[in-house]
């Protein structure tokens, strides 16, 4: 029986090549747009996590801090549970580091009278993935010590990127929903056209004792095939685009700082399955309406 259904579904696809192609391409484009967002979100999310893990809080100490105060402060810092590692950077070492970093602009530092930099502590927090508030609380706590003049960490710009990513994620969901609905209606429309072109044939089938299941099954198969091909097409196009972009990036400096990866095979499979579901549902809508009439 399954063989008969598959044969009829393929026959229909063959007889309605143009409309089938348009449907597959439209689904593929919808999938492409939605999965592009997914790919962007997956990569940027991973990048943010990496960056976030590397965030350090620099606590600049007051200029008049004595060695005993510094040692006591270090003792206090080590008691804070959220802190993973503490490193004291004396002002002389800080200046040496600055000179090293600015060795091409050395002239800027030659006229310095004395060392303007303060002693500081570089504090690494325990992994705070996605938890900006905790980072902020820790920074405030460190700043509340009398010995601390100021604290600095890359919170603001990272937070801004995170907000942007969040915005992208929401836009992705919105677009995903829109394209999902569009996909359902496109498939529904395609199946409806096929149904109308085969109206007489379906009527004859009913007259010879064909049950609704027998009539519907090939159309459901067709919906699944259209959805599956569209989904797979979208993923393949996305992969081609991804490979092209990464090949271009590989030639630039940027590539060393970012590590891109494509959607994992289970995610790709889920996208194709979701497209098949869209195809099936579009088919269901058409058949329900058609057979009711």
């Amino acid at each position: 029986m399954i063989r008969i259904y598959i044969k009829r579904a393929i026959e229909d696809i063959r007889n309605n090549r143009m409309i089938t192609l348009v449907t597959i391409v439209t689904i593929a484009l919808s999938v492409l747009i939605v999965s592009s967002f997914a790919l962007f979100y997956a990569n940027i999310g991973k990048m943010l996590s990496t960056w976030q893990e590397g965030i350090r809080i620099i606590a600049y100490l007051k200029a008049d801090a004595t060695e005993a105060q510094i040692a006591e402060f270090q003792q206090l810092l080590s008691q804070i549970p959220d802190i993973d590692r503490i490193q004291f950077i004396p002002k002389d070492e800080a200046l040496a580091q600055l000179k090293e970093q600015m060795k091409h602009q050395e002239s800027l530092l030659t006229h310095l009278r004395g060392n303007p930099l303060p002693d500081s502590f570089e504090v690494s927090a325990r992994s705070q993935e996605g938890n900006w508030d905790k980072m902020e609380v820790l920074a405030s706590r460190i700043k509340s010590f009398d010995l601390v003049e100021d604290v600095e960490y890359g919170q603001k710009w990272l937070q801004r990127i995170a907000q942007m990513v969040e915005l992208f994620r929401l836009a992705g969901y919105g677009l995903g929903a829109v394209f999902l609905i569009a996909g359902v209606f496109i498939v529904a429309n395609t199946i409806r056209l096929v149904l109308y072109s085969r109206k007489e044939e379906i009527e004859i089938m009913r007259l010879v004792g064909a049950a609704n299941n027998f009539i519907q099954a090939p159309f459901y198969l067709q919906g699944l095939i259209l959805g599956g091909l569209g989904g797979a097409g979208g993923v393949v196009i996305l992969m081609a685009a991804y490979l092209t972009v990464t090949a271009k990036l590989r030639q630039t400096m940027i590539f060393g700082f970012i590590h891109l990866s494509f959607l994992s095979p289970p995610v790709c499979l889920s996208i194709v399955l979701a497209s098949m579901l869209v195809g099936w549902f579009g088919c269901y809508l058409s058949l329900r309406q058609f057979l009711k009439n």
Binding site: R206, L207, V208, G209, A211, N212, F214
Partner: peptide, 12 residues
């Protein structure tokens, strides 16, 4: 849903 059963008894 039983109409197909009936029609299988009948040749038209």
């Amino acid at each position: 849903k039983r109409i197909p059963m009936l029609r299988r008894k009948i040749g038209i």
